[in-house]
């Protein structure tokens, strides 16, 4: 036997196999399966992609190609408090970029990154449908509206930020 290159908890693997089965193991359902998998694990590590590739009978390179093409998918685990800054048109026009820059500055993170201690991660989103509240920031499930850059520190402090 050739060497195995990945390891995954048995229960996690079974969960994935189940998800693929729900989509009838159809190669054409790759994006939907990836969506579900990311909802379950919060991100799509190599191991997860490997299981999906073999269950759907799709080339692993293709799975990776899809994961890296859509900005929605990520291979980096999200932080305990994932921060998403909306950069849709309305939010952008009303200063989302400054807000985002402030998050970057305080957290010392780039978009798509997770802090080494795993507490915060930073991401951008396209319009979340709350344009009336622009600019909008999400921390986990919680929504903050009309955010200005000088409020960023206060928001972070709610989650234990002490920098």
């Amino acid at each position: 036997m050739a060497e195995s290159k990945v390891a995954l908890k048995r229960a996690d693997k079974e969960k994935l196999v189940e998800v693929c089965r729900e989509f009838n193991n159809k190669p054409g359902e790759l994006i939907n399966v990836l969506h579900r998998a990311q909802n379950i694990f919060g991100y799509l590590p190599a191991e997860v992609q490997e299981v999906i590739a073999s269950e759907l009978n799709v080339a692993l390179a293709k799975v990776y190609g899809v994961v890296t093409f859509y900005s929605y998918f990520t291979m980096i685990p999200r932080g305990k408090y994932p921060i998403s800054v909306c950069t849709g048109t309305a939010c952008y026009v009303r200063g989302a970029e400054k807000v985002l820059d402030e998050f970057k500055r305080l957290l010392k993170l780039e978009v798509g990154e997770t802090a080494a201690d795993g507490v915060f991660s930073l991401n951008c989103l396209r319009c979340v449908g709350a344009c009336g509240l622009a600019p909008v920031v999400l921390v986990g499930e919680k929504t903050y509206g009309r955010v200005s850059s000088d409020q960023v520190r206060k928001i972070l402090e709610e989650y234990g930020y002490e920098g």
Partner: peptide, 8 residues
């Protein structure tokens, strides 16, 4: 072939 190993 590479096999996908699982850990308990």
């Amino acid at each position: 072939a590479t096999v996908i190993k699982t850990i308990e």
